[in-house]
Amino acid sequence: MVGLTYGQEASQWQKDISEAQSAGIDGFALNIGRDDTYTDAQLQLAYDTAASASGFSLFLSFDMADPTKPWDVNRVSSLVNQYKSAASQFKVNGLPLVSTFEGPSWSGNWASVRSATGGIFLVPDWSSLGADGVGAQRSIIDGAFNWGAWPEMNQRTISTGNDVAYQNVLQGKPYMMGVSPYFYTDLPQYNKNWYSTSDSLWYDRWKNVQDILPEYVEIITWNDYGESSYINEPVQSQIVSGAEGYINGFSHAAFRFVLPYFISAYKAGNTNVAVPSEGAVAWYRTTPASLNGCSDGGTVWGQSGDASASGGTSNVISVIALTNSPTSITVSVGGSSQTVSASDTIGKASFYQVPFDGKTGAVTVTLNGRSTTGPEITNNCPASGHINFNAVAIQV
Rank of each mutant, 00 (worst) to 15 (best):
V169Y: 12
S228V: 05
G143E: 01
N232I: 15
P214T: 11
Y190M: 05
I140R: 07
T185K: 02
W150L: 12
M176E: 07
W150A: 01
M177V: 06
N162M: 05
T185I: 08
K173F: 09
G143P: 10
S200K: 11
G178W: 03
I158D: 04
E218L: 13
S180R: 00
W194C: 07
S180G: 14
S139K: 06
D142Q: 02
V169T: 05
E227G: 08
Y246R: 00
G143H: 03
P151N: 05
G161E: 07
W147Y: 15
Y225Q: 11
Y195K: 01
P151H: 05
Q238P: 08
D163I: 03
L213A: 05
Y184S: 00
L213H: 15
I219A: 12
Q155N: 14
Q238Y: 01
Y190A: 11
N154M: 03
N154H: 09
Y216V: 13
I239Q: 00
D224A: 11
Y225P: 14
Q189L: 07
I219D: 04
D186N: 14
D142G: 02
L213Y: 06
K207S: 15
N223E: 02
M153E: 14
G161P: 01
L201N: 13
N193F: 11
Y225R: 05
K173Q: 09
D204W: 09
G148K: 12
A165W: 01
E152C: 02
P188G: 02
Y195A: 04
R156C: 08
I140D: 06
M153V: 12
E244L: 03
K192G: 10
A243T: 00
W222N: 03
